[in-house]
Lab assay of single mutants.
Amino acid sequence: HNLTITQGKLFFHYNPKLCLSEIHKMEEVSGTKGRQERNDIALKTNGDQASCENELLKFSYIRTSFDKILLRWEPYWPPDFRDLLGFMLFYKEAPYQNVTEFDGQDACGSNSWTVVDIDPPLRSNDPKSQNHPGWLMRGLKPWTQYAIFVKTLVTFSDERRTYGAKSDIIYVQTDATNPSVPLDPISVSNSSSQIILKWKPPSDPNGNITHYLVFWERQAEDSELFELDYCLKGLKLPSRTWSPPFESEDSQKHNQSEYEDSAGECCSCPKTDSQILKELEESSFRKTFEDYLHNVVFVPRKTSSGTGAEDPRPSRKRRSLGDVGNVTVAVPTVAAFPNTSSTSVPTSPEEHRPFEKVVNKESLVISGLRHFTGYRIELQACNQDTPEERCSVAAYVSARTMPEAKADDIVGPVTHEIFENNVVHLMWQEPKEPNGLIVLYEVSYRRYGDEELHLCVSRKHFALERGCRLRGLSPGNYSVRIRATSLAGNGSWTEPTYFYVTDYLDVPSNIA
């Protein structure tokens, strides 16, 4: 807008934040220059609390790290170098490059900038070799853009010569660093050979998330399962459950009422301010606690030095998902009996873990797994792929695949051998790939016309006998059925096997 004052003059007093240069501009645009008398524009009460600059400061050096910015700028000295009290560095987070010096300023003089007072450097006698002032900004957020400017702080001049310097606002972004852990990993099994893994992005990506790394490792069953005799009275049979499938998407929606109208769909109840505040506090606490764990609990591995020492970490090797089922080394339970199943799973520490690289999504279907087997899954978020990966501390989750139908069934015939004193040795093959492992066998036998009897055969007993022995049988026709019990439950009964026990007292003698 054009402003013209045809008559009258300007009068400025007691404006401590208004620089004289701005008042002189007002004289020019209003056409009143030359009308004012000496005392109409006070030299001592206008701009006496402001830094009124008329020179431009330029930054000469900028260096960044993930949490620091090192700045240096060209030296500046007023005509009387004693008038320079120091520099004021202003900075704040700036997602967009549209910041002005006066953003967030209120009537009390406060604003949204963080201000650092910096002492002037030592003055050199040689004007050509003056030290460049600077400042190291610490405690910054990774991968965050900051708006920065600097200006001088000078003393009051009796001659009211307006001098000083100020830089333009520059924008500097800190470097990326390792992201925080992925949030809320959930693993479920939808079949006997697959596990579905879902997660949420890290709360602090500290860069642009480029991919996720998912490692999985087959877990050995508890050692007590191999040692305890679950045929003993009072000892509860062990059981394991597989990871249940995901709930429906509708039930997972946030901010939804727990109660549904019987007449149909209901609208979600909005969260109160107290609920939102509580969630923010919980989120802040979780982030602080995660940072504490990362800094205190997890110790970084030592990389190899120039002395030739090897990095103890196993090298990563990509495998196809079809090879995942046989990740671990199978060892027989008892070496003397080769027909026992290889369900003991000690994992070799030198073995390469299978892994998958996930790009542009937060889910993965891990296939080719062994049925009813526990897996430990390790999830890392990465925001750099080359020249070397920059990934987060791992988040861990466990899951067990679903049982395989008929995996616990005894394959092959049940054979028998009759000894003296009416002892019958029953023999059968253990299931080759049971659900988890076989903890015991149930032997059901009966003599024709009598009630059915049951015998429990422990895992250890089966390994020693290759089956079991029935003792003290009365003469007669017998039928026997056997079924295995694994961590997933009972298998199917075998087809009945028949044998006849004679009275050993009636056996004919070869003595003449």
Rank of each mutant, 00 (worst) to 15 (best):
F337S: 06
D229C: 04
Q275V: 09
L464S: 07
E442C: 13
V457E: 02
P270W: 06
G308A: 13
R313A: 13
G306M: 14
D291G: 14
K317M: 07
F298M: 14
E310H: 11
Y396I: 02
E217G: 12
R471P: 08
H461C: 10
A309K: 13
E417T: 11
E260H: 15
N477F: 09
V424N: 00
R481F: 04
E282Q: 15
V365R: 13
D323K: 02
V439L: 10
T303F: 08
D409K: 10
I410Q: 04
S474H: 09
V327R: 12
L440Q: 15
P238M: 06
P475S: 08
V414R: 01
E420Y: 11
S284W: 15
F355E: 10
N295V: 11
S223H: 11
S257P: 13
L225F: 02
P431S: 04
T386Y: 03
Y500W: 13
T415Q: 13
S458W: 07
V480I: 14
K287V: 14
S284G: 10
V443P: 01
N383M: 10
C231R: 03
T386I: 15
S344I: 05
T272Q: 08
L369F: 03
S243I: 08
V297E: 09
R459L: 07
Y448H: 11
R376F: 14
S223Q: 10
R286G: 02
A336K: 11
R471S: 04
A488M: 10
N383W: 03
I438E: 01
V329A: 03
S479V: 10
G491F: 02
D408K: 00
F355P: 06
D503Y: 10
Y448M: 15
F499N: 00
E247I: 04
F372G: 06
L321S: 08
D450L: 04
N477C: 09
K271I: 11
Y441W: 00
D450K: 03
A309S: 13
R471G: 08
S509T: 14
N421Q: 07
D311R: 10
K432S: 14
S251M: 15
W493T: 01
I377M: 09
S268F: 02
E404N: 08
T272D: 11
E281C: 04
L487R: 14
V214P: 01
S486M: 00
C267R: 00
A399G: 12
S444G: 11
E351K: 14
Y292N: 10
L237S: 05
P244N: 14
E279R: 12
R481W: 03
S363A: 13
L369M: 10
D291H: 12
K271E: 08
V365P: 10
L364R: 08
G234T: 08
S398I: 09
E260S: 06
V507M: 13
G374K: 10
R469V: 09
Y292A: 11
V299A: 15
C269T: 13
E260N: 15
L228F: 12
L321H: 05
N477I: 05
V324R: 13
S315F: 11
V331Q: 14
N208C: 09
E258P: 15
V331N: 12
G306P: 15
C231T: 05
S363T: 11
E465M: 10
V424M: 05
T303H: 04
G374D: 10
T333N: 10
L369V: 08
K357R: 08
F462D: 01
E260F: 08
Y375L: 09
C266S: 10
E227L: 11
R218Y: 08
S342N: 04
M427I: 12
V423M: 07
E260M: 11
A395E: 12
V324T: 04
L228R: 09
T485E: 14
V423W: 05
R483S: 03
G412L: 10
N339L: 10
G476Q: 00
Y259R: 08
T210N: 04
S486T: 10
K233V: 15
V329T: 03
T288C: 09
T401K: 00
T303P: 14
Q219C: 05
Q380W: 11
Q429T: 04
S474D: 06
Q252M: 03
S344D: 04
P238W: 14
H352N: 04
Y396Q: 05
S283H: 14
E290Y: 03
H425D: 04
N360C: 15
L228W: 11
Q252W: 10
F355W: 14
S479G: 03
T272A: 07
V296I: 06
K253V: 02
K278A: 13
P434T: 06
F289W: 10
P332W: 04
K278E: 08
P314I: 01
Q252E: 14
V443S: 00
K271V: 05
A381D: 00
L235A: 08
V443L: 09
H425E: 10
M402L: 10
H416S: 13
V423K: 03
E217Q: 15
P338K: 05
Q219T: 11
D261H: 10
S315K: 13
N206A: 14
L277K: 15
D409I: 12
S251R: 10
L277R: 12
V457L: 14
L237I: 07
L470M: 08
D323E: 10
P354T: 12
L235M: 10
P496Q: 03
Y396D: 01
R481C: 04
E290V: 06
S486C: 01
A220Q: 14
F215K: 04
Y375C: 02
D204V: 14
Y375F: 08
R240A: 02
S348L: 12
P496Y: 09
H371M: 01
F337M: 14
P338R: 12
L426I: 00
Y441C: 02
I410P: 05
F285E: 15
P312M: 06
K302P: 11
S243K: 03
G264M: 12
P403M: 06
A407M: 05
P496R: 05
N326W: 02
E224A: 10
F246Q: 12
D503P: 15
Y259M: 05
R370A: 12
R316Q: 04
P300T: 13
Y498R: 11
L470Q: 01
E217L: 15
I209A: 06
C231F: 03
S398Q: 14
R459F: 08
I276V: 08
G489W: 11
P245R: 11
H461D: 12
H454L: 08
S479L: 04
S479D: 02
A399E: 10
A394W: 13
S341H: 14
A381F: 01
I377H: 02
A484G: 10
L437S: 01
N339G: 08
A395W: 13
G322A: 11
